[in-house]
Write a protein that binds this DNA or RNA. Structure first.
Lengths: 204, 204
DNA sequence: TGTATTTTCGAGCGAGCGATCGAACGATAA
DNA sequence: TTATCGTTCGATCGCTCGCTCGAAAATACA
């Protein structure tokens, strides 16, 4: 077993422990125990607890982003792009639930350079998604508030999954992706979509 | 200043500190300092740190739920109900950003009886929302997976807000509520809403 | 085999944690 | 004044934390 493999195994243990206990509550001793090594041995692979959190977060986004780029290559239809984006997101989320829970929930604990690098790669992921939504909306302005709100609403829908998803009970990645793509494109009330004069929120 | 008022002031300080530092990282000394009292003095108002977190979470949901019931009274149109639900949610979220950040982010740290009581009141809030979505979908089965997924997608959209909302930059509660209600009802692609034969996700 | 390098660990550091205690405070009533 | 009672605090407890050190064990190569 080479160094790289052992390091990735340590990362996986860290992700599991951080996901189950939360980053702050999880102790370095918990991680070491899960990885099957001593505390001092753990520090052979990292310089600090925060670096462990950083490594889990950055590695996750790296793989997620690379997979997205691969899947989107050559696809020009915005609706197909959206579906690919959502499906890619769910496939990764449901495969690496623990890592993604850490990324979603604990990345905000990072500071300094660690924070900067994770924020940067998160931003790349966000911008790639925003491009797709911009095409869907036919919005010319990349700074449009509507574009921002809509993109972040989509992010909310798909990121929140880690708080409720249960493998046996809920659909698989494809099922979820189909459903949420449909919801994001057409809403739950499609028959009223083409202007029927009745708007919501102006009646009070 | 009476006891109750002082206690609520302590709760507010706790919410602020928990929101800024995270529940685990925030020390009881931080809370005491923010509340302008000593550590021992703080323990006159609570039995433990966890009880403080519980009080913040439970109180928040209590107010949110009561406000929702008040607003929904007498409204029968599902679309109006949806708009009211979302608006109520945002109004509360944007008024008590810090408390709601704690609720969304840290409630999972609770254990035992504390956990049970917060989970229970969260469930009431969820079920009230699910009723509305059920009406919108015309779904007869309350256990339908689609109903569950759709409701949780809505929850994701509106709960995620605490991670990105910036008071100066983004719209106010009403603006957000209008936008998200529209998105949830009709999607971003309304012109393709009524079955045009082209579906997403079956092309690959 | 001997030697050099990589990997592992037991023991323990200083710091900070949540929580507790008995004493003392200030306002009120006798 | 004295006694009462709700409220506040300084001092401190036992414990766990992130992290480090020097030495030993495992491995690689001669």
């Amino acid at each position: 077993m080479r160094y790289e493999e052992r390091f990735e195994s340590v990362l996986k243990s860290a992700a599991t422990v951080f996901a189950r206990r939360g980053y702050q509550r999880a102790s370095i001793r918990d991680v070491a125990r899960a990885a099957g090594i001593s505390v001092a041995g753990l520090y052979y692979y990292c310089k600090s607890k925060e670096e462990l959190l950083f490594a889990v977060c950055f590695h996750s986004f790296d793989v997620l982003l690379q997979s997205l780029h691969r899947s989107l290559k050559g696809v020009s239809d915005p609706k197909q792009q959206l579906h690919i984006f959502i499906l890619n997101h769910f496939e990764y989320f449901l495969t690496y639930v623990e890592a993604m829970k850490v990324v979603s929930h604990e990345a905000g604990m990072l500071t300094g350079e660690f924070d900067a690098r994770v924020t940067e790669i998160k931003r790349q992921y966000y911008l790639r998604c925003q491009q797709i939504v911009q095409l869907l909306l036919g919005e010319p302005d990349a700074e449009s508030p509507r574009l921002r709100t809509t993109t972040l609403a989509l992010f909310g829908m798909i990121n929140w999954v880690y708080t409720w998803y249960r493998p046996g009970r809920d659909e698989d990645a494809k099922g979820l992706a189909d459903g949420m793509t449909e919801l994001f494109l057409h809403g739950v009330w499609p028959q009223a979509a083409v202007g029927n004069g009745q708007e919501v929120g102006n009646g009070g």
